[in-house]
Amino acid sequence: MAKITLKGLRHSYKPDPQEDADYALQQLDVDWEDGGAYALLGPSGCGKTTLLNIISGLLTPSHGQVIFGDEDVTQLPPDQRHIAQVFQFPVVYDTMT
């Protein structure tokens, strides 16, 4: 796995967000180092799934960048990112076996 950097990342499902409350994912600046072990925890509705969908390319962020190693992958589709997400419970993919 390469280092994952999130720069000024935030997301709103509204077409023209005007204030902080309009964002489902508040601004996030973080570096996840290669080889590290990380957990994403928080209450329902705090943006965990939104963040994972942005990192994996299923969703394009309203603002900011997703960087793998030295490559900005923000606009790349999921199949070109070579990354996946796994949930504790398969609620997102409940139609698959």
Rank of each mutant, 00 (worst) to 15 (best):
K7H: 09
V86D: 05
M96S: 13
T60C: 00
Q88D: 10
K7L: 10
G8E: 13
Q65V: 01
Y93V: 11
Y23K: 13
H82F: 09
S62I: 04
L6Y: 10
Q26W: 14
K14V: 15
R10N: 13
A84Y: 07
V30Q: 13
G69S: 03
L58V: 00
D16I: 13
D94N: 08
L6C: 08
V73W: 04
I4P: 09
G64Q: 02
G42W: 09
A2G: 07
Y13Q: 05
Q75P: 00
E71Y: 03
G64A: 02
F87N: 08
L51T: 12
N53A: 02
Y93N: 09
V66S: 01
P61Q: 01
A84N: 13
G8I: 09
G47Q: 07
T50C: 04
I4M: 11
G64K: 01
A37Y: 15
Q88H: 12
M96V: 11
L25R: 11
D72P: 01
P90K: 04
G64M: 02
K48P: 04
I83R: 00
H63V: 09
A21Y: 08
K48E: 03
L6F: 13
Q65T: 02
L59E: 01
K48N: 05
Y93E: 04
A37H: 15
M1D: 12
N53Q: 07
E19C: 08
L9K: 10
T50M: 04
G42V: 07
V91D: 12
D22W: 11
D79M: 09
S44E: 06
V92F: 13
A39R: 11
S44A: 12
K3V: 13
D34C: 05
A2C: 10
I55D: 06
H63P: 01
H11P: 06
Q27S: 15
L76N: 06
Q27C: 07
D20N: 14
D72G: 00
A24V: 14
G45S: 06
G47I: 07
V30H: 13
